[in-house]
Structures are given as C-alpha cells and as structure tokens.
Design a protein around this nucleic acid. Sequence first.
DNA 1: TTGAAAGCGCTAACAA
DNA 2: TTGTTAGCGCTTTCAA
Lengths: 342, 342
Amino acid sequence: MTETTKRPEKRVTVIDVARAAQVSPGTVSNAINGKRPVDSETRARIEKAIATLGYVPNMAARGMRTGRAGTIALFSSMPTAVAAGASKLGFMMEIAASAAQVALRRNVALVLVPPIAAPADALRNVPFDGALLVEPAEDDPFLDLLSARAVPVVGIGAAPRAGMPCIDLHYRATAKLLTEHLLSAGSRSFPLVIGTSARQYYREFEEMYCTILASAGLVPRVIRVDEAHGEEAGAAAVEARLAEDPALDGVLVPVDALATGVMAGLRAAGRNVPRDVRVVTRYDGLRARTETPPLTAVDLHLEEAAERGTLALLDMIEGAETPPVRLLPEPALVLRASSAPE
Amino acid sequence: MTETTKRPEKRVTVIDVARAAQVSPGTVSNAINGKRPVDSETRARIEKAIATLGYVPNMAARGMRTGRAGTIALFSSMPTAVAAGASKLGFMMEIAASAAQVALRRNVALVLVPPIAAPADALRNVPFDGALLVEPAEDDPFLDLLSARAVPVVGIGAAPRAGMPCIDLHYRATAKLLTEHLLSAGSRSFPLVIGTSARQYYREFEEMYCTILASAGLVPRVIRVDEAHGEEAGAAAVEARLAEDPALDGVLVPVDALATGVMAGLRAAGRNVPRDVRVVTRYDGLRARTETPPLTAVDLHLEEAAERGTLALLDMIEGAETPPVRLLPEPALVLRASSAPE
DNA sequence: TTGAAAGCGCTAACAA
DNA sequence: TTGTTAGCGCTTTCAA
C-alpha cells in the first residue's frame, strides 16, 4: 500500500498547497491575503498550485483565527401581521437591499433576520460580527440575543436603549410634517391611529400630534389598535370612530398596514377619500402607492439611512468610535391624492 | 500575584465553563448541543456556570468542527439598471423575504448577495453552505464563484447549466399566457420586447411568442434592447417601432423596467393605453402596480418558488438527493387596466 | 453517563 | 522575503 494509493479524498488545505508550491503554509496564507509581501515568482508558484489542486480556503478556520464572521445581521422586529401582506416586509427589505450593497463593498455580507418565533434558537449556529436593528420595540426579544452575543449594534429609527448608536429616522419631524399637512389641507377633526406596542416611534408621534393639535385649538384623539390584527383592526377602529364623530375629516395613520385598513373602513362607511376624509401615512411603500386613491406619505430617506447605519456598524466592528446619532436629511412629504387640499 | 488577579479579560470558553461546573469540556458541549444524554443534575450545574460566566459559544470554532457555516446565500445577477430604480431589486427581495423565513425555521440564515462588481473579492470572507441563484444568465459570473466553492446550488427560474437543480418558473407557460391574452384582447400587431443578455428566460419567451403568432397567421417581431439602459431603452425602442408600424396595438414586454420605458414611449408618442395599445409585462411588482394605468402581469408564485428552492437546498446540504426540477403551480394572469379588452 | 485528548485549517508571532 | 510553530475554541472519538 503506497502513498499514492491513499483513498479518502480529503479536503485540500494550505498545507497541501504549500507542499506543492514548495513553500511554507504561512507564505501561502500571505500570498492569498496580501498581508505580507510575497516574491512574485513564489506567488506564481503558489497560484499555480492553488489552481491545480483546486484549493478553496476554509472560511470557518479563517474566521476562527481572525475572529471575524464576515457577516452582519439585519433584524426587524415589527409584528408580523403589519409587515406581511401586500407590502411583505417592504420596509425592512428596502433597507436590506441598500445595506447589503454597502456592506459587500467592504467585503461583508448581510444576513437577513425577519421576525421569527424563536430567534435565539434559530440563530444558534449563525455567526455575525454586528447587527442593524430596524425600529426595535423597547422590549424587543432581539435585544437580549444581541447583548448575549456582545456584538456592536446600530439602531435604525431610534435607540431602544440609551447608549446604542442609531440612525435617527426623525419621528418628531415626520409627525409634524403629517399633522401640519392635514391641518393646512383643511382637516379639523382627525384622530391619530397607532399600534399598541411600546415603541419610541409611537410615543413621539403621539406627543407631537397632541402638541400641534392643542396649540391649534383642536382636540387630539389617539386611537390605539393592536398591530397584530393588521388591516381589519384599522378598519374597525375607523368605523367605530366615525360612529362617535361623524364630522371626522381626516386620519393620521402612520403604520401602513393600518392605513390600508382605515381606507377599507372608510369605504365601508361610504366616505370618499379625500373629499370627505383625508388620509395620510408614513412609509411610502407598496401599500401607500397602490391604495385607491394612493396615499400621501413621507420620504424617510431609507436608502441613506441604511447606508449610514451599515457604514457606522462596520466602523464599530473595526474598532472605531462612532458618534451615537447620525443625521439624515429631513423627511419630505410625498403628496398624493388621499389628502388633496379642499 | 494570585489567580484571581489575572487581568486580561479573555473570551469565556467551554474550558472555563467546564472548570466552573467541574466537568469536562466534552460534557459541556453535549449539554449545549444535546448530542449525547447528560445527567440532569450535571446539566443544571453547567447551565448555571454558563449563565454566571456569560458564556457565548464561538460560532467559528463550532463551524470549523462541524463543517457548517450556518448560512445560505441568495444571488441575483440581473443587470443592475433593470433591477434598480423604483422597484429596487424587488424581484430578488420578494424571494429573499420568503427564503429567509423558511431557512431560519431550519436554523439557517440567509445571506443577501445583490449584483456586485467583484463578487469573488467581496465574498472572500463570507462563508455559506449553499446558494440560491435567481434567474442566472448563462455566462453568469456567480457560477464560477459557486463552482469554486463547491457548494450545492439551486436555480430559481431555470438551470443555467445542465444538472443544476432548479425551481422552474414556467417561462413557456408565462409567455403563452401573455401572448394569448393579448390576442384574445384584440391585439393583432404587437412586438415582443426583451433584453440582449443570454438568458433562457428570453429564449423561451421568444420561441413561444413566435410560435403562437405564426400559428395565428400574424407576423412576430422581436425587439432586443440593452437592459443596462433601463427605461430609456424601452421608450426609444417602442417609439422607433411605432414609426415603422403605426398600426401597432400591443406590446409584450416581460422585463418590468423595460415595460415602464415602453409606457413612457407610448405616452410621448401620444398613444393611449389600453385604448390604442395594450401593454403586458411579467413580474407583478411595484412597477407594474404603480404604472398609469397599472400593468397586466403574471402571478409567478414567487413566494412558493422561494420556499421550495430553499427547502431543496437545505436538503441537499444535509446530503439528501433532490429531484432536479420542482414543480410550481401554473402562472396566473393578473389582469389590469393596461390590457383591457376592446 | 463522563473524561481525556486529538485535531479541524488557518493565521500571526517570532526567528531567520 | 520566508520558515517554524503555536494555538484559536470547539466537537468527537475512544476509553472508562
């Protein structure tokens, strides 16, 4: 039984390449990674050996040495029902598309973590060097998971915990924009419809809305509906409200899935949008654009938010200090038929 | 200098946990992974030690032993210009959302790889156990990368190379559906507008379109435009065609970015859709839905395609044999105003 | 049910 | 510019 007969075709390793190229494994490594200069002739031999043997570096082993997974994770925690349906995770996916491209330019890949039942379990074997958290709730289950991993985290929206760097999505400015738009379009009696979960997003919207209405001499009215029930909850809420307030002439409903529900409720109640009632929402996604009539919404500059968040995260992973909050351009109104002025 | 004074806070490892729980590292591993039974009392000690020390397993080390990265990658290679713009990678992202959820249920995460300039370089340090390839071109740069990695691959659309398992997106049936729809809606002179790259998608569309038109006694006309030029190319193509054929009364333009361009071209030429010209496209994404008027498109069952593709891939990774082609429900027409019958 | 020990493949420190 | 060597943290035999 000679050496040449050895059967079990093992994985080709640096050692095999080194032997074939008559150099040491360290030199092979340096030829591949360019961390140290390698003589061009030596490099040629190594490259030839790599090609001949069909060597593919073992990422896991490399990761073990370097301490890098080569990936970052994007988490989105919105209640599934809100995210699902027509716009199917649209908000998250819009961020994901940009983040993935930016990260890849720095040789890091983006891992997608949509809302799931048992995150800790599902991610048992999934390595990542850092995380982007999209509009986390304050009791977000992902937060524990991430603090256990002890990796850098950047929030997109607002920081759920003090000290977490984040890309500010300008909740207050957005609320102001929409509330004042309804006012100037002529609405005088319009509730704010938001979800029940604990989110800074809701809190700041509510605060801004109430302040503006009060100073305009109007009565604010906040309706909370369970996002988990999606569109139907939105429809039911607006129908109930119409019964109490037949003079209702607008609805500010930032969550797009609820907005679609509100539209259905108004249709069912025989109200015309925008003639009788104006409706505005926040995220300018598929739902807002394909509603009949299409909904006035807000350009949040999500693409830019994703890019900055990703770059900040990559910097943190590489050990850089990061300013806690990165600024975005101000949100801009996207005017559509649902809130045409009188 | 006592043991308690050791300063450099090192990572907590199985060894530390084992010491604290007074067991061997192997037992800690088994307690965590449940591969071997562990006495419940012992397990309790280990769990306590893990909690106390804040132990987090090192995924890279685990991956090195098990040979699993814990991720799969989703590649999409469509020319950027087509994918970008309003519907920003919509097709890929729709698949991604479903695939990510299905994969996570099997404790595997999805890595997103949108079209990029230097894929081999960008993915240098990114480990994955398998790949989904969305509508690959025949000379797709990702194919080399994947064969170098020697991981299982599943195509979504059609297999670019013989032997690759794939989820069939029914190109022929889709082409038939759209062509016959235009015919039965009353169109008699309608070109097929497709891209210039080498894709099975285009080839099968062309073939089916030509066959049907010929057997209806009509003259097929195929217009190829460079997808990289996006909407403008579509607009220019249809305007040129109108000059040659003023009787043009329909356009079959499967690529949605080109369809948007065709619509713009028709508008510029003063043609009304659908009164003068009917337009139909394939992917029922943001573009089709928000065009004015909205475009007739096809329900490709992308969600189901993504799910089946992902499951097939995971099975392959686990060593199962996979039938080369998985069947999907037949594509279904989504009728919209752009092709209303006479 | 548990322990001891080998070693996965790579990179980085040190030496030459 | 290159070689030598140690060891990252884990799982998995084999033995008890």
